[in-house]
Design a protein around this nucleic acid. Structure first.
Lengths: 211, 211
DNA sequence: TGGCATAGACGACCTATGTCGTTTAGACAT
DNA sequence: ATGTCTAAACGACATAGGTCGTCTATGCCA
């Protein structure tokens, strides 16, 4: 039976999970997610196939863990902590999402079918919402709204906007896209309590440092 | 090879696809999506298993077609046409989403795993975005935004909000939720061109007629 | 009404999936 | 170092998934 992924003490568990995640990552450079079998993954990771099922219920849940972990790590590396409704933090999240999408898609995939994309998107959105929620969960919100709804709405809106930007042919550069998306989203965030230190948007610096 | 689902002339095709969709719908009342095999579906639909693959690539794509079709039908039945940024139309979409989520979840599922939910959500979101896009695609929008980005952002925001509302324990009634969610998303819609006939929100009537 | 195009039936085949029970070996504490 | 606990290996098995080629019969149009 699979065990939760965060904070695993036993180094053996970490090692094999790393191996499995690394294997999937490598394989996705060569073929699409749907073409990859659990056998393929365990072959590359050099663990027994049955062992795979000790950690993940199927390849979808492995993907899930990878996306959630990867995006969370990206946010952590950049020290993104959403302090209140400060637009700078929101910009950082938007930028991170742009970068993450770019990074994961440059890795080979023309996968225009099946469950891969929705699953991956769900993972990213969850991570975004959680980050935002940490910033707004103690703010007062007008009835019948809740901090959760604010965070979720903003999180989904951000991902939708970034996704659409990403798939737009001849899209604007990130440096333009981020403040534009920010403008769309701030009203949602402003619904929650008083604003942070910065009140109005001023297009902060947005150098894209790739993962 | 599977053929597109919309506007199928041949009645035989419609018939078998209806049978397959109906079978899945029935089966989902009894067990979770992941527990249902293609065999199960074709047994209930009384078609050969191989025939299934003539229409859908897998059970996920069947679900996809069902959700997209079902939600689209719901919107069509209610004559939801998103004329500009008029809040009434937005309310109708939000309400429809609430109802659809309620209807599909009352049908048995405690499915807290796997690809089912993300897949279903993706279908709903796509339908919402398409509907909104029809209303804003010819509106002028400030650079570097596009009508597509407006529509996608609003669509994802709406679904996220409704989802969060839906999963909130002891949630407010729809009649309160819809205008609240509307308040969150109108700013996004208002980014696009001049508003429709109604300018300010006034909490229009929102009787929930279930599907 | 008759012929044609083609959806669906059917059976066979191979691969992938998921599960079990047993055995091996590595991590960790004493 | 040594013993214990348990992750992982391993082999085996039953079921599900997906594909192919051929045959049948039904909808459609002339």
């Amino acid at each position: 039976m699979p065990i939760s992924d965060c904070e695993v003490r036993d180094p053996r568990i970490r090692r094999t999970r790393q191996a499995l995640q690394g294997a999937l990552r490598d394989l996705m450079l060569q073929k699409s997610f749907e073409e990859i079998s659990v056998q393929d993954i365990t072959d590359v990771a050099d663990v027994n196939r049955a062992t795979f099922y000790d950690h993940y219920t199927d390849k979808f849940s492995l993907l899930d863990a990878m996306v959630a972990g990867g995006f969370h790590k990206l946010l952590a590396e950049r020290n993104v902590l959403f302090d209140g409704t400060c637009p700078t933090a929101a910009s950082a999240i938007i930028l991170a999402t742009c970068d993450y999408l770019t990074a994961t898609h440059s890795a080979g995939d023309c996968t225009r079918n099946s469950a891969f994309e929705p699953l991956m998107e769900a993972g990213i959105v969850t991570a975004i919402c959680r980050t935002i929620l940490r910033g707004v969960e103690n703010k007062p919100v007008p009835q019948p709204l809740t901090p959760q709804i604010i965070a979720t709405t903003a999180g989904w809106a951000i991902y939708g906007a970034v996704k659409q930007w990403f798939y737009t042919p001849e899209r604007a550069p990130v440096s333009e896209a981020v403040p534009a998306i920010l403008q769309l989203v701030v009203p949602i965030l402003l619904t929650a309590g008083p604003t942070g230190p910065h009140d109005q948007v001023e297009t902060p610096l947005l150098a894209s440092h790739q993962a």
